[in-house]
């Protein structure tokens, strides 16, 4: 009896300390992540600075209807989804390919060198990355146009062509991130039981067979998990890079949801409309994540939670 009460007392003291440690990050979470959710109500209101968030007038679904009826909505949603899916479709195979090639590298030192070099561009900031793209494709001094000039062709203003925006975005991403993306697969590959390789060698497997029958199956669950993560974030594809690559001429394909929300909200200062689009975006994201997760669970690879 006495023991259990002192035990209770001790548990209480313990718990109290956990709460104390958690206090600061929890406060941060509430203020900066949960309080803004209250602000979502202005998506259903006509926000006026003079009346504030709570005092502004309710307008129901007006902004949502407005968004879905405008031709822009379909365009920005399509731009976002196609950019994301294109990006995923290209970057996944490349990362897996690089990881497997590195895993089969002849010597350890060669492997380290390739890894070091390919991983390097990951540390370049988005601003520098985009300005590199702009410099290289410049009509007057870009090395790409100098190269084209060697064949007697006239310079092309790559950044001004809406039909090229997605390709430039995705392939420069491949350049910048494949080395980084490969790390996780490499980690999974090093965890493969060496006995499997041993057995394969005894059976006279070629290296190519080894890749298809041992390597790929053993990183399958990693691939699925990453694919889920990426599919869940299809709608939140990077603002930072797309925004910097935008110009008046390529806006037709380069305007994605996040840049549109920014333009409407902070440049045109239409807070309510922008919030409504943001909410639509968040909801689509939520549904996507929950869907792909349950799909992954059903497929037997295990979901994220």
């Amino acid at each position: 009896m006495i023991l259990s009460s002192s035990h209770l007392h001790r548990t209480f003291r313990r718990q109290w300390q956990f709460y104390a440690i958690m206090a600061l990050p929890f406060l941060h979470l509430i203020i900066f992540k949960y309080l803004p959710m209250l602000g979502l109500q202005i998506g259903f209101k006509q926000y006026r600075v003079s009346k504030g968030i709570w005092g502004s007038e309710w307008v129901g679904l007006k902004h949502f209807v407005h968004f879905f009826q405008s031709p822009t909505s379909l365009k920005v949603i399509w731009n976002t989804v196609s950019l994301s899916l294109y990006s995923i479709a290209v970057s996944f195979p490349f990362a897996i390919f690089l990881a497997i090639a590195l895993n089969e590298a002849m010597s350890r030192r060669f492997k380290k060198t390739v890894q070091m070099v390919t991983y390097m561009p990951y540390f370049i900031s988005t601003v520098v990355m985009v300005s590199m793209i702009i410099q290289f494709t410049d009509t007057r001094l870009g090395v790409l146009n100098h190269f084209i000039g060697l064949f007697g062709l006239s310079p092309v203003n790559f950044m001004a062509k809406p039909e090229l925006f997605r390709h430039i975005y995705v392939w420069t991403n491949v350049w910048q991130q494949t080395g980084y993306n490969a790390i996780i697969y490499l980690a999974a590959l090093t965890a493969v039981d060496p006995q499997l390789y041993e057995a394969a060698r005894v059976d006279g497997c070629s290296k190519l067979q080894k890749i298809f029958h041992i390597d790929l199956p053993s990183i399958r669950s990693t691939i699925v998990i990453l694919l889920i993560l990426n599919m869940g974030y299809v709608m939140s594809v990077g603002f930072e890079k797309a925004y910097l690559m935008q110009n008046a001429l390529n806006l037709e394909t380069s305007e994605i949801i996040s840049t549109y929300i920014y333009r409407i909200g902070l440049i045109n200062a239409d807070f309510s409309f922008s919030t409504a689009i943001g909410l639509v975006n968040s909801l689509i994201n939520l549904v996507l994540l929950l869907t792909v997760n349950s799909l992954a669970k059903r497929s037997g690879e295990g979901g994220l939670w």
Binding site: I31, F32, K33, L35, P36, M37, L38, G39, L40, I42, I53, S258, I261, Y262, G265, L266, F271, S274, T275, G278, L279, N281, S282, L283, N285, L286, L289, L290
Partner: peptide, 13 residues
């Protein structure tokens, strides 16, 4: 990680 207030509500905060 799944859901957020979004750009403008965070900006207003």
């Amino acid at each position: 990680m799944l859901f957020s207030g979004g750009l403008i509500p965070t900006y207003m905060l």
